[in-house]
Amino acid sequence: MSRRPFVRLVSGTRWYFGHPRYLRYMSREVTCIFIGAFALLLLRAVERLSAGQAAYASFLAAIAGPWSALGLSLVVIFALHNAVSWFNVTPKALPVQIGEGFLPGGFIVAAHYAAWILVSLAVLLFAGVL
């Protein structure tokens, strides 16, 4: 009786089309492009700020416009996606055991959402938007 196991190959570049949950995962992973791009924008803002008032004014003028608005809209959307997917799994990484039971995961998620809303409101107030 000869053994001849058959190995099914998985595509290294297209595997994530194999199941909707893999696409959902990849949509979470690509948020990093937008978080990274936004960090670079912040870095640029700080650099222009350090170069003086005129430099910073031209920076603000440069980021005004429909294309910037489109790009920043994408950043907001993917940042929201990162936030939601991040907070939703916090109970997995940091479960809280109380006596014989565990704090329901929903509590931990809700606490993060509450903190998120408070921080966002505080920033908007501080920025003079609200």
Binding site: V89, K92, A93
Partner: peptide
Amino acid sequence: PAAALQQVKV
């Protein structure tokens, strides 16, 4: 298992 692995990472 995903929870266990995240806890192992932490």
